[in-house]
């Protein structure tokens, strides 16, 4: 039994992120008392419904200055919650916010740190994780040496749990926020309206050098469209200027773990595999039968992507009707 777990649940613009439910689902799996920390401005209405994802008690910290992410403000809130609740484990999902908040909080309190875990469990009374290192060439099993441990888990590594018929208890937490608002977020600039982010998508369709020209990303977008997927890219496509770096999957891009990853015209260099090899299901489309991507693909199609992709778009549309 994991004892007491404190889960940081992320919200942005007053909407809970998918990562919130993933983190709570994992906390429930680990067992023990599940507490959540919700930070923001006017977010209390989001709190009780977190019970459906497994939170027993939600501690809320609300202030106008917390409306957007504020590293030192959020760190003060999380540190206060840790000091008040004395959890065995503090859990976050490794989003941009989660990673940042974990680092500052861990340094403030001298916590045992497990970052970007592919899996997390309890072993011999300690928290143990598997994490990817050396660009995916090494899977390390690491263990926290003391409690509380603080851990960030890779987005989509764990599923969103089936909702339960439960409301959480809500308790406001008073926190002394720093007087000075340093590193203030002035505004948030959206990448492309309505575009699914690669790290939040259940399905990703990625394009690589095999597309030959930037205009051919239209094929990727079309296939992503019928799957309801996010658009990803290999480093080659990003470095060629065909698509923005925010879509890059791989060692110097994002690490993703969706339920389905479709690699189109991507050879499968080790640095790309580092970012997607933990996907639940991998489909590869490449004209080279010896492309390394086929070594990790569950289903591989050796063929001309300019024929295969349009055929797949039509077939998926048909099947979904």
């Amino acid at each position: 039994m994991a004892g007491r777990i404190l889960v940081f649940v992320e919200q942005r613009d007053g909407i809970l992120r998918k990562s919130a439910a993933e983190a709570l689902g994992l906390a429930v799996r680990l067992g023990g008392e599940v507490h959540a920390l919700l930070v923001g401005e006017n977010v209390s209405a989001l709190a009780a419904p977190l019970g459906a994802s497994g939170a027993q008690t939600v501690h809320t910290v609300e202030d106008a200055r917390l409306a957007r992410y504020w590293s030192e403000g959020y760190t003060a809130a999380l540190a206060a919650a840790i000091q008040t609740l004395q959890p065995d484990l503090v859990l976050l999902i490794a989003t941009a916010m989660g990673k940042d908040l974990l680092a500052r909080t861990a340094a403030r309190l001298g916590l045992a740190v497990l970052t970007d875990c592919i899996s997390l469990e309890e072993a011999d009374g300690s928290f143990q994780a598997v994490k990817s290192m050396y660009g995916g060439k090494v899977f390390a099993t690491v263990r926290a040496t003391r409690k509380p441990a603080i851990a960030s888990v890779r987005p989509s590594a764990y599923p969103v749990p089936a909702p339960m018929d439960r409301q959480a208890e809500v308790r406001p937490l008073a926190v002394d926020l720093p007087a000075e608002h340093r590193a203030r977020v002035l505004e948030v600039v959206k990448q492309e309206e309505g575009e699914l982010d690669v790290q939040e998508a259940e399905i990703i369709v990625s394009g690589g050098r095999g597309l030959k020209e930037p205009a051919n990303f239209a094929l990727i977008r079309a296939l992503a469209g019928v799957f309801g997927a996010a658009v990803g890219a290999s480093r080659a496509a990003v470095d060629a200027g065909w698509i923005d770096h925010s879509h890059q999957v791989g060692q110097t891009g994002k690490a993703v773990s969706p339920k389905l990853y479709v690699a189109v015209g991507i050879s499968g260099a080790i640095q790309h595999l580092a970012g997607m090899r933990t996907s639940k299901c991998i489909v590869a489309i490449n004209k080279d039968p010896d492309a390394p991507i086929f070594q990790v693909a569950d289903y591989g199609i050796v063929g001309d992507l300019f024929k295969v992709v349009p055929a797949m778009v039509a077939e998926v549309k048909k099947v979904k009707q």
Partner: peptide
């Protein structure tokens, strides 16, 4: 705050199926 228990190469993904048929079949 952390120690390495063990290191291993990434788990192999086996049992993948490869199709080289015509597009209309594959």
């Amino acid at each position: 705050g952390v120690r390495t228990v063990s290191l291993a190469p990434p788990p192999a993904r086996t049992g993948g199926k490869k199709f080289a048929d015509e597009v209309e079949v594959a």
